[in-house]
């Protein structure tokens, strides 16, 4: 069988090699240019490493909306749509977006429809800040500042294992002043105790339920400094002569609303 085919000019392989591309070219020329497979984004979609998040769904077929050829995802592409996001900029924790001018470190796309394209990375924030100080010239204040800040990051041990030394360079109050539950009594160095992924400190233990030192950490709400205290609060708890600094007379460590001897008091 093989011997026969060798003599013939038209082996199956040769026919395929010629007819295949020929058919392809003819079909390509025949189909209209609006057809789906002739759009460049359809071909580009074949290289898509994962679908866009729900928020960017409308850009599915518009790769150029975010991707500049060769340069990748440029910040200016993001700003075209997301400039002047009032609700973002007037809120203290996210006000830094006004001058951060770098988006891709925290905003990752192509992770699938369900994943939010935002993941706060405080280390990236510190890196960006240090980078922005890097003007190249050694003559400027920026250079000195950057050197000093880098001295804080390189080789320094972080105050605890839940934070990196780079993150300690950040000024927490710049964005989180309103999250300070300690009325500034614990100072401004939040990173001594807190981490950047969540506020709760796993090692924290509340003092004993029998402790009478509540006032050392807790301050009463404004109502307790007004007539409200004598007229309502103390009476409800059945302790008409209790003073405001004697929290333990009425309150327990289960909940502020769980009044000693009275049960759960539903406040207005």
């Amino acid at each position: 069988m093989k011997a026969k085919n060798k003599n013939k000019k038209w082996t199956a392989t040769r026919i395929l090699l010629i007819a295949g591309p020929l058919c392809f070219v003819i079909l390509w020329l025949l189909t209209p240019s609006e057809s789906a497979f002739k759009q460049s984004n359809t071909w580009q979609k074949m290289t898509e490493p994962g679908s866009l998040s729900n928020a960017h769904r409308q850009l599915e077929n518009n790769c150029a909306a975010c991707h500049t050829p060769v340069q990748g995802v440029k910040t200016s592409n993001c700003i075209v749509c997301h400039a002047n996001n009032e609700s973002l900029l007037q809120r203290q924790p996210t006000a830094f977006h006004a001058s951060i001018s770098s988006c891709v470190e925290c905003h990752l796309e192509h992770q699938g429809v369900d994943k939010r394209p935002t993941k706060m990375d405080h280390e990236a924030l510190a890196t960006i800040g240090l980078r922005q100080l890097n003007s190249g010239s050694t003559e400027t204040e920026n250079y000195i500042l950057r050197e000093e800040l880098l001295a804080h990051t390189n080789g320094r041990i972080a105050p605890h294992s839940r934070i990196t030394s780079k993150e300690t360079v950040l000024n927490c109050l710049a964005c989180h002043a309103n999250d300070d539950r300690h009325f500034k009594l614990f100072g401004q160095d939040c990173s001594q105790c807190h981490a950047t992924d969540k506020w709760t400190i796993p090692e924290y233990r509340h003092p004993s339920a029998t402790s009478m030192d509540c006032a050392q950490c807790h301050q009463a709400p404004p109502s307790h400094y007004m007539m409200h205290f004598k007229m309502i609060s103390a009476r409800v708890a059945g302790k008409p002569h209790a003073r405001v600094d004697q929290c333990f007379q009425c309150h327990q460590t289960t909940s502020w609303n769980d009044i000693l001897g009275t049960g759960w008091y539903k406040h207005h």
Partner: peptide
């Protein structure tokens, strides 16, 4: 973006 970390 070329501004001091503090003034940021």
């Amino acid at each position: 973006a070329k501004s001091r970390l503090r003034s940021l």
